[in-house]
Computed example of a mutant assay.
Amino acid sequence: MNEAFQAITLYVDADACPVKTEIYRVAGRHRVKVFVVSNSFLQVPQDPLIERIVVSAGFDAADDWIAERAGRGAIVITADIPLASRCVKAGAEVIGPTGKPFTEATVGMALATRNLMEDLRAMGEVTGGPKAFSPKDRSAFLSALDVAINRLKRAGFGSSAP
């Protein structure tokens, strides 16, 4: 592979990811390599473009594995805001499972909100959980992933396979 070419790579924070099937479908269409990273064994399709990575059960082990590899040309799929922040800082495209992109402009506020909610829960406030994942979220995710891959292709990044 020549040094001018860099393939698009998808990193999936997979333990609680509700859109793995959609990721596999879009990645297959675009011929993009996918790393499915988790703390436990997960079933993945038999496809040379999809690689399962099982990390140790250590705290943030999956996040650390992804963050160490994320950079320009990578797309990270995660709902974990601290991981999203690390990956955005490294130059990766980051998308939440609901299709919400994390950018330099939005990740700081998302992190601040997360920390505030964590503090409120620690003080005993009932804050509720996230809203249920919906078909609209799934559709928004598919669109956001397609947009991110096409944006990287226009920027000169390519598919992992012919």
Rank of each mutant, 00 (worst) to 15 (best):
K20Y: 06
F35Q: 11
E125C: 10
G96K: 09
V37C: 09
V37K: 13
I149V: 08
L145R: 02
T78M: 06
A144L: 02
V147R: 13
G58D: 14
L145E: 04
G96D: 15
F5E: 14
I66D: 01
E51D: 06
G108W: 01
T21M: 12
I66P: 05
K100T: 15
V19C: 00
L116C: 01
F5K: 15
A16R: 03
D15N: 10
D60I: 04
N150Y: 06
T103I: 10
R25L: 11
K100N: 12
G158D: 05
V26N: 04
A14V: 07
S40I: 11
T113R: 10
L49P: 10
I53H: 05
A148D: 09
V36N: 08
R151V: 01
A16K: 02
G91W: 10
S134P: 05
Q6D: 13
V36R: 01
A79P: 08
Y11P: 08
L10C: 13
I81M: 07
R121A: 12
K20M: 12
A110L: 02
L83T: 00
G73W: 00
V19M: 08
I8F: 00
Q6V: 15
A62I: 09
R86Y: 03
I50Y: 09
G108E: 12
G71D: 02
N115Y: 11
D15C: 07
A79I: 00
R72Y: 12
A144F: 03
I81Q: 08
R31F: 01
T98W: 03
G128S: 04
Q43Y: 12
F41A: 12
T9L: 11
I77P: 04
S160V: 10
Q6P: 03
G71F: 01
D80G: 12
H30I: 03
A7P: 11
V54G: 05
M109Y: 07
T106D: 09
V34E: 08
L83F: 08
R29V: 14
V126F: 15
E104T: 14
R154I: 02
G124P: 09
R86E: 06
F141Q: 00
G73S: 06
S38P: 09
V147P: 00
F157G: 13
I95G: 00
S40L: 11
G28L: 06
G28I: 03
R29M: 03
R138C: 06
V19I: 02
G108P: 04
K153E: 13
P48C: 07
V32F: 07
F59T: 15
F5V: 14
D64H: 11
D80S: 01
L116T: 12
L152C: 04
K89Y: 11
F141M: 01
A74C: 14
A105S: 15
A14Y: 03
V55H: 07
S85Q: 12
